[in-house]
C-alpha cells in the first residue's frame, strides 16, 4: 500500500505547533513549505499556539543576555540557561530592556542620541520623551524614515520610559503629572488610532504608597503599589474599566527596599505562582496561595539586571 499523504490544510495545523527553530529548518523541505512558513498569516496562527516562552535577562553592564525556559521557573526542574548573542558588536554601551511583545524584544542603548521607548506593534516603534523635550511623544513605523509627533499629549506629564507596557493595541505608561498637585497617572496610547487617554487607577485603600510600577499579567494591565513592608498587586480585569480593578494578593517584602521600592511581576502561572523582579537585583517566585518563596534558578549575571518574559514567534519587524 502506498504511504498516505497528508493534505496541506492539516499540515498547516501540525506545523503551527512547532517551535520557531524547527520551522526555520523545515523551510528546506520544499518551496510550498518555505512560502507557508514565511507567510505573516502563518506567523499569527503560530503565535496563538505560542510554543515556547522564555525569561530573558539582560545584564546592563556586563553585556550578557541569557534565556531560561519559563516552564522550568515554576517547577523543581533544573533550568537550562541559554546564552543569547549580544545584539551589538560595539560593547561600549549598556543595554536596557524596553519591552517585549509578539516575539520581538526591544532594547535601548544609553549613549545613542534618541532613546527608543518601546517596540510594540510588529511594525511600530514609539519614542518616549527625551530629556530636552519631555512632553513629546513620537511614533515611528519601521520601514519608514520619519517620526510623527503625537499631538495634544497632555503637558506637564512626565512619562517613565521603561514603564511602557503593550496591551490591547496600546502602550501604557506610568507618568508623573505636575499640575495643581503632583500625582501618578497611567497614560495609554492607542497605536492604531494614535489616540491617548488616561487609564483610571484602583483605590489603593488608604495605604502609604511609596512607589508604583505597572505590568501585564494574565493579559490584563496590572499595577504594583509598593508600601514600606509589602507590595499589593492589582489587576484591571476589563481594560479601561475602573470598577474592574481587583487586588490579586499582597507580596510581603523580605528585606527593606528603601523609600522607592522597585517591584515588578513578570508572570503569574496557572497555579498562582508569581515571578517577581525585586529592585532589578534578584528574581524570586512567590507562591501567593501559601505565601512561600522559591528561587527560580536564574543565574545572577550582573549587579543590575533586567528581565522580561518573551514568547518566541515567527513575526519579523521587516526593516
Amino acid at each position: 500500500m502506498p504511504l498516505p499523504t497528508l493534505p496541506f490544510d492539516v499540515v498547516v495545523e501540525i506545523l503551527s505547533r512547532l517551535p520557531v527553530k524547527i520551522l526555520m529548518q523545515l523551510q528546506c523541505v520544499c518551496k510550498s513549505w518555505k512560502s507557508l512558513i514565511s507567510d505573516p498569516k502563518f506567523a499569527k496562527k503560530h503565535l496563538r499556539h505560542a510554543s515556547q516562552s522564555l525569561v530573558l535577562t539582560v545584564g546592563e553592564l556586563d553585556f550578557v543576555v541569557i534565556a531560561n525556559p519559563l516552564s522550568s521557573v515554576f517547577t523543581e526542574a533544573t533550568t537550562t540557561t541559554i546564552q543569547v548573542d549580544y545584539p551589538v558588536k560595539d560593547k561600549d554601551d549598556s543595554a536596557a530592556i524596553v519591552g517585549s511583545c509578539h516575539g520581538i524584544l526591544c532594547l535601548s542603548f544609553c549613549s545613542q542620541p534618541m532613546k527608543v521607548a518601546v517596540v510594540c506593534y510588529p511594525h511600530t516603534l514609539v519614542q518616549g520623551p527625551v530629556s530636552n523635550c519631555r512632553n513629546l511623544v513620537k511614533v515611528h513605523t519601521l520601514g519608514t524614515t520619519s517620526w510623527r509627533t503625537i499631538q495634544d499629549f497632555p503637558p506637564n506629564t512626565l512619562i517613565l520610559n521603561e514603564s511602557g507596557k503593550f496591551l490591547r493595541g496600546a502602550i501604557n505608561w506610568l507618568a508623573y503629572r505636575q499640575r495643581h498637585s503632583s500625582c501618578w497617572v497611567i497614560m495609554s496610547l492607542d497605536l492604531e488610532k494614535e489616540f491617548h487617554r488616561e487609564i483610571p487607577q484602583p483605590d489603593y485603600g488608604g495605604i502609604n504608597v511609596l512607589s508604583l510600577n505597572i505590568g501585564v499579567l494574565r493579559d490584563c494591565l496590572c499595577i504594583f503599589s509598593n508600601a514600606d513592608t509589602f507590595s499589593d498587586v492589582w489587576l484591571m480585569k476589563e481594560y479601561g474599566n475602573k470598577d474592574s480593578w481587583t487586588k490579586l494578593f499582597r507580596l510581603p517584602h523580605t528585606r527593606n527596599l528603601g523609600s522607592w521600592p522597585l517591584v515588578y511581576a513578570l508572570y503569574v502561572s496557572n497555579d498562582d505562582q508569581v515571578l517577581f523582579d525585586i529592585e532589578r537585583e534578584e528574581l524570586v517566585v512567590y507562591n501567593s496561595r501559601d505565601g512561600t518563596f522559591k528561587d527560580p534558578g536564574i543565574q545572577i549575571i550582573d549587579k543590575w539586571m533586567e528581565s522580561e518574559v518573551y514568547h518566541e514567534s515567527l513575526i519579523s519587524p521587516c526593516f
Binding site: L26, C30, K31
Partner: peptide, 23 residues
Amino acid sequence: IADRIANKSVEYVRRYFGIENDF
C-alpha cells in the same frame, strides 16, 4: 505529530509527509 517530528531531519520530514523536494 509536531512533537514527534520536532527533532527529525528534513529528509525524514519529507518522507513522512510524502513531499517531493522541488529545490
